[in-house]
Each structure stands twice: as structure tokens, then as C-alpha cells.
Design a protein around this nucleic acid. Structure first.
Length: 1036
RNA sequence: GCCCUGGUGGCGGAAUAGGUAGACGCGCUGGACUUAAAAUCCAGUGAUCAUUGCGAUCGUGCCGGUUCGACCCCGGCCCGGGGUACCA
């Protein structure tokens, strides 16, 4: 009798459910610990083995922390709004809510199968009105807030109204779209509409005409992180730049705090790097250049003000306000043409083609230091969205400016030189010198300074002269928050006289209305415009776009602390107890999206005084991707090539006594094989081809004095011995008929096992379902049934088996390498799957899925079970006292497992359990096995729970205590020293631990084996590292 | 291009602080049990040479350095994976 995992696992899952084992309640007598998984979008495909990897890790950690006496919050929910359900709705008319519900149920079933310790009473779904009420509520708070740069904090907009009324913009430093300046009198004189327009310039959620990523195929706008290489991440459709009126979140106001916060959290270094780059802080200066003959000035941003003496032209972006007005009559037509061309280029085109392009405007700027008049160009290598959309070009020290200058034949002048390097005229340069440090030259008062000093000196001078100031720029853009989509949160906004107003909080949630179709209207409005009565009771129209995917996921971790609260987003009591997330596990792909948005969202709520921490996640772990391991079968693609290969095996290496050449070229003709010595030509073809050409070949051979043999594929495949005899006869000079008519070869579905020689030459690999392959051996019967076109398949086997090839690829349906966790749970049980997923390797590392190894873990579980049971599967435990050796094994295991879980090294824990069992052998003592049962329970909760109850406990193993490590049991009195010579280990020597280095050295040197290795050589030095190693350095 | 990661047997991986490289598992080979198979158990398993025994040499992507001693630290390169790209 063996361990019946199916029944036992089901039993305990039911028990946990019935007893609310994993329900978390506030308990101030215990320290809290918050473990969070990135909640999934419930896709129709369900889970594959890659998804649960992170969940298993977090579950182990949660269970461990609970056993260590923490009150653990470990919730789960669904990121339920999203494009796939909506696309499906468009195609089929099924309401996305129905699709989503169905998918969630499937997910839940799969998750339940794995025995996770989630507190499901706290489940949230972003598409649930009770949940998105608070997403909408937060949006209203953002709408009603502005950001004060001086206080570095969000403040209520009502406060700003008061300030404007009393002092205008004087003395204020606010995060805004445009730098406005007005007096109190001006403000007070404006009507409501004008005042609201001005306030929009400051709101943290604001409406503005901005260039957006418009995806015509999806009919919506996308955020920057939803676009990759000019294509939408979902669907891969082209995206174009377009100016549209959109809701945005002023995340840029928080750029510095988002950057600073990274130093306070424990995230993987790459994630911090990605966020750092995404935010992209650069320190520089904004400088105003006068324009020849005009009153307005041109503002540029540069990080290298020290190079201003090397400026030889200016460049502005095609979308720049001055672009057209700077064009002189002479250049107007060309400028207009260029601007139109540049604006209409899609991102995809721009990325594909990186040719230098640009257009002279005819206008000139004046260098404030050299007073030189320098031409102003328009070029699309300058981006309107960064800095001021205008630059001073320093071709000697910037690769893009250099390329531009060379293309338009503009002067290049060097102003920085590498210390001590020879000065080469710039005409001879092939690339710019992008010097981050060096010595200034040709730069008046900066000459001789180092770059760093020069930047400071120049910044000081610029500010003194009043022509500019120091400035920090960020690459980060405000987050576009509108989607022209149905399946998302409606904005709690209505329009009165064209001005947006927030809905009264008492009216929340504003529920998603029913629509007849999930498509835009004929006039191009979003789907919500189709809804009947999509307006307030007073008749004011609601906003018709919906919120993006990241809206609902930005604060879900907070809602989990108090998920059913209808009065407020969460109670202060709940959030102050549970605080922020201690451990967050999820994929790296969220580094620039969700993780930045939710950090921003959290900081905003922190500013409002609602949450106690500035950062939402203390520690982040990225689980690595599980790649698919595809299997291949090799189908014969050319029987002619296969036949040629077979015959060549008979001929090559003078096997018949004479040398044959393969693929022999005779004038314009080509033959498969040729023997010069015997003047023999051999050609292999299909029967009917041979019939056609037999005569021609025959004549040709006669003319040239060759003997020829035409062989049909059929003969090679079915009568190779006859073919061989013919060739032998021919070589021996016998009279062999050139061509004998025979049967036609009917091509078959033939598959060649991987290691059959020559296979590569005549087969093509075909993906085969990994579920009909085991240890790379194909189940031939299942293969025949797998696809109708294979049911007549025939095989060339090796050792009676068909061996498949394999490759590591992405896990995907089309490659037939998707491993479904349910199948494995059915075959091996959830505990085994959990252990195996951890055993595969470090959680953070990407690794291929390979079912081959799971047997080993399954064996371990069975072995573990047998330690507690006799041959008849009866629980059989001894109350005998444990031996010192057994206690040592147990306590070494306690120490190792505890340490490894603490450092999230889950894979080595599994090895440790195996080693422990191997060492304990047949030990069945309670004193050892009871703690071991608790130790393994985070990994294999079902079997642990069963054994725990068999031990006679009537409460769950999850309520047990983590075993305490006792050093006394593992203390050693001796250490086996590796004795090495010049760093090479030669033998071991067991010595008492209390022996001092001097004594050790003496003992080792006196040893016979040591003498053997030092014989005839001079001992230069002996290194003794207590409890580590002895190294003897010998010379000669 | 730039930034980050990783590179160890046939395979997944271990070596936590510079100190016995290859733990544990898979696979493979041989054996035990069995009428047989499965399951289970035992032994072996980095490479090469020597195998009559002791063994010897090489070996953590490549080249070099530091050190008594390097998978680990330093310098230079090669390859795989991810991010990002006219960000001035």
C-alpha cells in the first residue's frame, strides 16, 4: 500500500476550508507579516506551470512565518478588467463580465488544487463595483489635488483656489502643465470657466491635449509601457502618435520621490535600474538664445552647458511651436514640407530607418557667449516631449549632432580634449568625442578647467547673466489615463458647459452601463457613448472613456487590509495594523508599469495621510520565467535524399573497394555518385522520373564511355540488398542492366528517431505534444492518435524506441509544450508539484520546465510517508529516545531549512529534506519525525497535515510551532581537515577541534601521507585555517 | 550602442564569508528481489590516461592578474537572456 495523495489532499483542502484555517484577523498580540503575490489577470487559457511558481514560494514563506509566530496576511484576487475579455466580447457579443467570471472560476479551481494558504475571504476583483468604487474615489482625490514643489507634497485644490484669490501665482512653485503667471486680481476677474481651465493646469488628474499613443486597431490610446517598438504589447498592432484630449495623471510631480524611494526598498537591483532609467533624471541647464531679428527667445535644455563655445547650430523638433514661424520666406515651403512629413511618420517607420534628416529654417540664433550667428534647423532627432524640444548642437561632442553636422556640412569645433591627448583637427574625425571628463579648450574663461568644474562655472555664469538657470529634467512622462474602451472603470466625471466636474462621492460607484455593442460609435466615440442615459440626473453627460488596466491594480494591496469596507477605502485601524507589504512576489515585466504606478499611487495616499508608509512594498522578488521544453519528431521530408544517404553508406570510404564521389558534376550534368576508376555513374530517382529520363541517360553514358545504373527509391527503401548486389556486380565488371522497371514508391509518413545517422539530412523537425512523450521517448500509439494525419505514421526506431529531440523555447500552445499543473496534480499530487517547482532551481532564475525530474520528488514523498508507516500502511511510530546521530541530523536540517527559507533559497531546502531522510534511514521515532513534519509543512502542507493528525493532534499543523534549533546536538569534537599541497587536496585527516594551529601543523607534518607528498621537496610554508583547511606549500 | 543578468557533468542545479568543485535529484550502467513487468533496494557515474594495485593529469565560457589557495576578487574578451534607445 502506498501513499494515497488524491484522497488525503482532498480531505485536508476540505478541512482547511471548513475551519477557515487561513483567515487572517487583526491580532495585536502578534507581529504582522504581509505576503503578497501580484494578482493575476484571469485569461481564458488558465494557469500553466509557470504561474504558480511565485505563488508556491510566497505560500511557503507565509506558512513559515505563521509557524514562526507571525500573524500573516496572504490574500489573493483578480486583476479582472482587461483587453482580452473585451476583444472576445467584440467578436462574440458575450459580455466581458461573463467571460471574466468564467475565467476566474477556472483560475480559482486551479489555485485551490495546489493547496495555497490564501485568505479567500479577502478576495478582490478590480471589476467589482464595490471595489472600483474606491478606484473612482481615489481618482476624485487626484482630481481635487495639486502638487506643491516646495512642500514636495500633494495638497487639496481648494487650498490653491484660496491662494490664487489672495496672491495669484506669486511665490508659488507648483507641478503644472504650462508655466503660468497671473495676479490675484486677474484670477478674481476670471469667470468660472476660465478659472476651471486654469486649475486644470495644476490638478494631479487632469484633462489635456497631449500627444498620445493611438492604436487604431484596438481603437484606444495606450500608455508608454503598453507600447513596445511602435506596436501594442497586447495584440501587436501598430501605434501612431496623435494629439488627443485625454485624462492624465501628473506622476512627473513625484519623479524625484519615486527615485529617492528606490534607495529605501529591497528590490532586485535590475528592477531598481529599470525604474531609474525609466524616470531618467538628468541635471543640466535651460538657456535662452536670442534669435536674429526677433523679439522672442529660444529656450533649450542641455546637460553640458560647458560646451556652449562649441555650439555650431541649433535644432528644434518638428512639433515645436516656433517651427513654422522661424521659416524665412526662402525656406517656408521646404520647412512646411518637412514638418508635415516628419509629423506623419509613425514610430515604427522612424525606428526602422535611422537616416539623418532635417531642414534649415533660414533663421539664426545668437550664441550668448561667442555672439556668433548660428543656423536653426528642424530635425526629428530632437523630441518635442523632452526638455524644451530644442537643443544647442555641439557636434564635436555629441554623436547625433556630429552625424547631423557631417550630413549638412556644418562646422565642428572641439572644446573638450582628453587629458594629454594630441589635438587632431575635427575634419579628420570619424566620430564625435563624447567626453564625460576632459579639459576644456577654445572656451574663453573655461579653458583649462575639468568638465565637472566647467559645468559649475558655466552654470554660475548663465545664472549671473540672467540668460538661463540650472534645471533638472526627467524622462518620465505623465501617465495617460484614458482608454477608449468598454471594459474598465468609468470615470466619475460629468461635463457641464464643457468643463469636467467630479461626481459627488455619495454617488459612487458609477457603474459600468450596458451597451449594445462593444465597439466605438460611428462618429468614433468610445463604446460608453452607446449607453442609454449616460448622464447625471440633471442631464449632464458622463465621461465616455474608461480607466486603464493599472488603475485597479495600483492600490489593491491596501484594499486587501479591509476589503469589505463600504464606508471608506480602508479603515485606519486595518491599514495601521497591516501596514505595507513585507514581501511582494511577481514578474519582472511589471517593473515600468504596475510597480511605478502603484508606488506613485501609494505616495499620493500617503500625502493625504491615509497610509502610514511612503513605499508600498518593502521587499520584492521576481520569480523567473519558466520556459517550455519542446519535443520534436523528425519526419522524412525527402525520400530521394534518404535513399541517396542509404546508398552512400554502401559506397563511401571505398567500402566496395573503389572510390566513389558524391554529387558528381560532369559538364552540365550532375549525378548522385561517380566512380572514376570504373567509370560508373549512379543516379537515384523516383520510378516515374527514371522512366522519363532513362533513355537520355543511357545515350549520354554511351557517348562518354560510362556505365550507368539507375536505381529507384522503392528499391533502396525495400530491397537495399538487391541494390547493393547490383553495384557490387557493376564494380566487378559484371553486366548489370542500366534500368529495370519496378514498383513506384508511395511516400509514407515516416519518422526517424533522433540519433539515427543521417537523420538531419532528410528530415524536418515537427513539434510534438510533450504530454505524449516521456523522458524524450515517444509514445507511438498516442502519437498516432494525436493527429488524424499521423494515424498511418511509421517509424525508424533506435533500440526499439523512438527518441525525440528537444529545445528550450517559450511555453506556448503552438509549440505543444504547455504543461498544465492540473495534470501533474492528478498524477503526482499537489505536494509533489509544489516541491518539484521549488526543486527546479532558484525562484528568481529563469529555467526550463522539464517533467523528467518530478519522479525523483514523487519518490521522495513516498519515502517520507513510509518513514511513518509500516508495510501495511499503518501509522507506526516509536516512542523510543532518539540517538545523538538522529538528533544531529534533525537539528542540522532545522538550521539549514530555517536559514534557507530566510534567504529565499527554496530549492536547497528540498535537497536538504532529501538528505535528511537519506541520513535517517529507517528511523521512525516521534522525537525526530514530529518536528520534521512541521518543518516540511510549508512545502508539502497536505501530507504534513495528515501525519500531524496521525500523531494525535487535533489542531492543524499550521497552528504548530517552528522547531527550535539546538546547537548542542550538532556540536562536533573533531573536524576532518582536507590536507592540500599547493592548493590541491590530497587526503583528509580527522583532528580534534580544540587543537591549536601549531599542534595541527605538527600533526599534519608528522603524518606518513604528508611525507609522501613532500618527499624530496622543500616545505616553504604551512597554512592552517582552523575548521577549514590545511595547505602545505612545497617547492622543487 | 548603453544598462542589467547569466555562463559549473548528458540534464536541472549545489558550493551562504576566497578554503575538499560537482551536494541533492534526473538520466544512464550494473546488480538484488520477481515466472515477468512495475515498484523497491544496493553499487557505480566530470573528462583523459593508467587500470595489477597505489593512482596521475586536466577541469566551473576564453585570456591574463592578485593569492599559500580563485566558480568566487581584479583587468581584457566571447556567447546566451532581459531592459532601453535619437532623452540633448
Amino acid at each position: 500500500m502506498e501513499y494515497n495523495f488524491t484522497e488525503i489532499e482532498r480531505k485536508w483542502r476540505e478541512y482547511w476550508k471548513k475551519h477557515d484555517t487561513y483567515k487572517a484577523v487583526i491580532d495585536k498580540s502578534k507581529p504582522k507579516y504581509y505576503v503578497l503575490d501580484m494578482f493575476p489577470y484571469p485569461s481564458g487559457a488558465g494557469l500553466h506551470v509557470g504561474h504558480p511558481l511565485g505563488y508556491i514560494a510566497s505560500d511557503i514563506f507565509s506558512r513559515y512565518k505563521t509557524l514562526k509566530g507571525f500573524n500573516v496576511l496572504h490574500p489573493m484576487g483578480y486583476d479582472a478588467f482587461g483587453l482580452p475579455a473585451e476583444q472576445y466580447a467584440i467578436q462574440t457579443g458575450t459580455h466581458p463580465a461573463i467571460t471574466t467570471e468564467k475565467n476566474i472560476n477556472k483560475y480559482r479551481e486551479q489555485l485551490d488544487n495546489l493547496g495555497f494558504s490564501f485568505d479567500w475571504s479577502r478576495e478582490v476583483r478590480t471589476s467589482d463595483p464595490k471595489y472600483y468604487k474606491w478606484t473612482q474615489w481615489t481618482f476624485i482625490q487626484l482630481f481635487n489635488s495639486y502638487y506643491c514643489n516646495q512642500a514636495q507634497k500633494a495638497r487639496p485644490i481648494s487650498e490653491l483656489v484660496k491662494i490664487f484669490a489672495s496672491q495669484g501665482t506669486k511665490g508659488l512653485d507648483l507641478a503644472c502643465t504650462d508655466d503660468l503667471s497671473f495676479t490675484a486680481d486677474e484670477w478674481n476677474s476670471w469667470d468660472e470657466k476660465k478659472q476651471q481651465q486654469v486649475l486644470m493646469n495644476y490638478r494631479l488628474a487632469y484633462l489635456a491635449d497631449i500627444p498620445v499613443n493611438w492604436c487604431p486597431k484596438l481603437g484606444t490610446v495606450l500608455a508608454n509601457d503598453e507600447v513596445v517598438d511602435g506596436l501594442s504589447v497586447r495584440g501587436g498592432y501598430p501605434v501612431e502618435r496623435k494629439k488627443m484630449r485625454q485624462w492624465s495623471l501628473r506622476i512627473t510631480a513625484y519623479a524625484q520621490r519615486l527615485l529617492d524611494g528606490l534607495n529605501t526598498v529591497d528590490f532586485p537591483e535590475p528592477v531598481k535600474d529599470i525604474q531609474n532609467n525609466w524616470i531618467g533624471r538628468s541635471e543640466g541647464a535651460s538657456v535662452f538664445f536670442e534669435i536674429e531679428g526677433r523679439s522672442e527667445k529660444m529656450e533649450i535644455f542641455t546637460t553640458r552647458p560647458d560646451t556652449i563655445f562649441g555650439v555650431s547650430f541649433m535644432v528644434i523638433a518638428p512639433e515645436h511651436d516656433l517651427a513654422l514661424s522661424l521659416a524665412t520666406d526662402e525656406y517656408r515651403a521646404k520647412v512646411e514640407e518637412y514638418v508635415t512629413w516628419a509629423k506623419n511618420r509613425s514610430d515604427v517607420e522612424r525606428m526602422a530607418e535611422k537616416k539623418v534628416s532635417g531642414q534649415m529654417t533660414g533663421s539664426y540664433a545668437i550664441n550668448p557667449f561667442t555672439k556668433e550667428h548660428i543656423p536653426i534647423f528642424i530635425a526629428d532627432y530632437v523630441l518635442i516631449g523632452y526638455g524644451t524640444g530644442a537643443i544647442m548642437a555641439v557636434p564635436a561632442h555629441d554623436s547625433r549632432d556630429f552625424a547631423f553636422a557631417r550630413h549638412f556640412n556644418l562646422p565642428i569645433s572641439q572644446v573638450v580634449a582628453k587629458e594629454g591627448a594630441e589635438i587632431v583637427p575635427t575634419e579628420q574625425w570619424t566620430e564625435s568625442f563624447d567626453s564625460k571628463d576632459g579639459i576644456l579648450m577654445n572656451s574663453d574663461f573655461l579653458n583649462g578647467l575639468r568638465v565637472k568644474q566647467a559645468i559649475k562655472a558655466m552654470n554660475d555664469r548663465i545664472e549671473e547673466m540672467g540668460i538661463g538657470k540650472r534645471k533638472v529634467n526627467y524622462r518620465l512622462r505623465d501617465a495617460i489615463f484614458s482608454r477608449q474602451r468598454y471594459w474598465g472603470e468609468p470615470f466619475p466625471i460629468y461635463y457641464k458647459d464643457g468643463i469636467p466636474y467630479p461626481l459627488d462621492e455619495s454617488k459612487l460607484p458609477l457603474e459600468l452601463p450596458e451597451v449594445d455593442k462593444y465597439l466605438p460609435t460611428e462618429t468614433g466615440e468610445p463604446p460608453l457613448a452607446r449607453a442609454k442615459n449616460w448622464c447625471t440626473s440633471e442631464g449632464y453627460k458622463y465621461e465616455t472613456s474608461t480607466m486603464p488596466g493599472f488603475a485597479g491594480s495600483s492600490a489593491y494591496y491596501l484594499r486587501y487590509t479591509d476589503p469589505h469596507n463600504d464606508e471608506m477605502i480602508f479603515s485606519p485601524e486595518a491599514v495601521n495594523y497591516w501596514q505595507n507589504v513585507d514581501l511582494y512576489i511577481g514578474g519582472r515585466e511589471h517593473a515600468t508599469g504596475h510597480l511605478i504606478y502603484s508606488r506613485f499611487w501609494n505616495k499620493f495616499l500617503y500625502d493625504l495621510g491615509l497610509v502610514p508608509n511612503e513605499e508600498p512594498y518593502k521587499k520584492l522578488i521576481n520569480q523567473g520565467m519558466i520556459q517550455g521544453r519542446s519535443n520534436f519528431v523528425y519526419r522524412v521530408s525527402s525520400f530521394e535524399k534518404m535513399a541517396e544517404y542509404k546508398v552512400w553508406q554502401l559506397l563511401k570510404d571505398k567500402k566496395l573497394g573503389v572510390e566513389f564521389k558524391q554529387d558528381y558534376k560532369d559538364g552540365k550534368r550532375r549525378f548522385d555518385f561517380y566512380c572514376d576508376e570504373k567509370k560508373i555513374l549512379i543516379e537515384i530517382k523516383r520510378e516515374h522520373s527514371l522512366e522519363k529520363v532513362a533513355e537520355a541517360y543511357s545515350e549520354y553514358a554511351k557517348d562518354k564511355g560510362y556505365r550507368i545504373l539507375l536505381i529507384s527509391i522503392f528499391d533502396v527503401m525495400n530491397r537495399i540488398d538487391v541494390v547493393e548486389q547490383k553495384i557490387k556486380d557493376l564494380v566487378a565488371g559484371g553486366d548489370v542492366p542500366e534500368f529495370e522497371e519496378g514498383e513506384a514508391f508511395v511516400p509514407i509518413n515516416l519518422f526517424i528517431s533522433k540519433n539515427i545517422p543521417g537523420r538531419e539530412e532528410f528530415t524536418v523537425p515537427i513539434h510534438v505534444d510533450i504530454n505524449i512523450v516521456s523522458n524524450d521517448i515517444l509514445d507511438i500509439e498516442k502519437f498516432r492518435q494525436w493527429r488524424p494525419d499521423f494515424n498511418d505514421a511509421q517509424f525508424v526506431l533506435e533500440d526499439g524506441k523512438y527518441i525525440c529531440g528537444w529545445e528550450i523555447e517559450k511555453m506556448s500552445k503552438s509549440m505543444y509544450n504547455v504543461q498544465n499543473p492540473d495534470d501533474l496534480v492528478e498524477r503526482y499530487g499537489a505536494d509533489t508539484l509544489r516541491l518539484y517547482e521549488m526543486f527546479l532551481g532558484p525562484v528568481e532564475q529563469a529555467k526550463p520546465w522539464d517533467t523528467n525530474g518530478i519522479e525523483g520528488v514523487a519518490r521522495f514523498i513516498k519515502k517520507f510517508w513510509r518513514m511513518f508507516h509500516d508495510e501495511d500502511n499503518n501509522f507506526c511510530i516509536s516512542e523510543e529516545k532518539a540517538t545523538p546521530a538522529e538528533l544531529k541530523t534533525l537539528h542540522n536540517t532545522i538550521k539549514k531549512v530555517t536559514d534557507d527559507i530566510e534567504r529565499f533559497s527554496f530549492n536547497t531546502c528540498v535537497s536538504c529534506f532529501m538528505i535528511c531522510c537519506n541520513e535517517l534511514g529507517k528511523c521512525n521515532k516521534r522525537e525526530i519525525l514530529e518536528p520534521l513534519c512541521v518543518l516540511i509543512s510549508p512545502y508539502a502542507p497536505h501530507i504534513a497535515e495528515e501525519l500531524w493528525h496521525e500523531f494525535g493532534h487535533d489542531t492543524s499543523v499550521t497552528k504548530a510551532q517552528w522547531p527550535e534549533y539546538n546547537e548542542a546536538y550538532t556540536k562536533e569534537t573533531t573536524f576532518t581537515y582536507p590536507i592540500s599541497f599547493n592548493g590541491k587536496m590530497r587526503f583528509n585527516l580527522e583532528l580534534p577541534l580544540d587543537m591549536d594551529p601549531k599542534q595541527i601543523e605538527e600533526t599534519v607534518m608528522a603524518n606518513d601521507l604528508t611525507k609522501k607528498y613532500t618527499d624530496g621537496k622543500q616545505v616553504a610554508k604551512v597554512i592552517v585555517v582552523p575548521k577549514k583547511i590545511v595547505n602545505i606549500v612545497v617547492k622543487g
